[in-house]
């Protein structure tokens, strides 16, 4: 079965707590190809923790240049007093279609006024916002480093305060997605932490299938497992194609 698969939640760089990782974009690309993934949005794990990730973001943008189908997803850290400079530099780069916010890892909170200001500016410049609500199951974190997932109520309030934004929220579990869907339909979600018998069928009852995208969380999660979640779903082929790539393409071209 041939199906375009666009991965909205892929990473390069090093992870300090486990021997996983694609050190660079070339290694990720090879890994993707082996699993039938055609391209996607890439962020750097090395940028995740930095107050000023500008240099790492710049390196990522350079590494993805001239690689068709691979789009850089730089991370903005709002803990930096000069975050507006970080953002301005990113938005000057044509290749940047979206900006990732990862509050738990950057050390700031989504209920900060800066999260509203930054999101508003990103959208005003015609780009999209991707929010990392969770990267790691909190039950499995290193005992000395605990990053809480972003609470659904906080996400809902943030979305409400930026009326021009429809963000892609990544890393929510089943009950969290359903809770968010009760408060707003102005978000997209990936399925990186959503799983149930017939994942696609279950979540499609609560969220418009046009707002669900593929995100593997590779290399922290197994890529083949997440690919199977879509390609071997009992959903119609049209729905699987939309989830695999179509919805993400629309999101990034909106």
């Amino acid at each position: 079965m041939s199906m375009e698969i666009y991965d909205t939640n892929a990473w390069v760089g090093s992870w300090p707590f486990a021997p996983v990782g694609h050190v660079d974009v070339a290694a990720l690309r090879q890994h993707w190809r082996a699993a039938g993934v055609t391209g996607g949005l890439v962020s750097s794990l090395d940028a995740l923790w930095l107050l000023d990730p500008t240099a790492v973001n710049a390196e990522l943008i350079k590494a993805t240049q001239r690689l068709a189908g691979i789009d850089p997803l730089p991370i903005l850290n709002l803990l930096d007093p000069a975050w507006a400079e970080q953002l301005a530099a990113l938005l000057r780069t044509k290749a940047v279609k979206a900006v990732r916010l990862a509050p738990g890892y950057g050390g700031w909170k989504l209920n900060d006024q800066r999260a509203v200001a930054a999101a508003s500016e990103i959208v005003a410049q015609g780009r999209q916002v991707v929010l990392t609500a969770r990267l790691v199951d909190e039950r499995h974190e290193h005992p000395s480093v605990k990053v809480k997932p972003v609470a659904v109520k906080t996400i809902a309030r943030w979305i409400e305060k930026v009326p021009t934004m429809t963000p892609l929220v990544q890393g929510l579990g089943r009950w969290e997605i359903e809770e968010l869907a009760k408060t707003t339909d102005r978000f997209l979600t990936d399925l990186s932490f959503m799983e149930w018998m017939d994942t696609v069928g279950v979540i499609s009852q609560k969220v418009d299938p046009g707002r669900i995208v593929f995100g593997s969380l590779t290399p922290l999660h197994g890529l083949a497992a997440h690919v199977n979640k879509i390609t071997q779903s009992p959903a119609t082929m049209a729905r699987r194609r939309a989830l695999a790539a179509g919805n993400a393409r629309k999101f990034l071209s909106a």
Partner: peptide, 12 residues
């Protein structure tokens, strides 16, 4: 859990 996803842990 989702069966194809769980099997993918092994096959991948």
């Amino acid at each position: 859990r989702d069966l194809p996803t769980a099997v993918g842990r092994i096959t991948g």
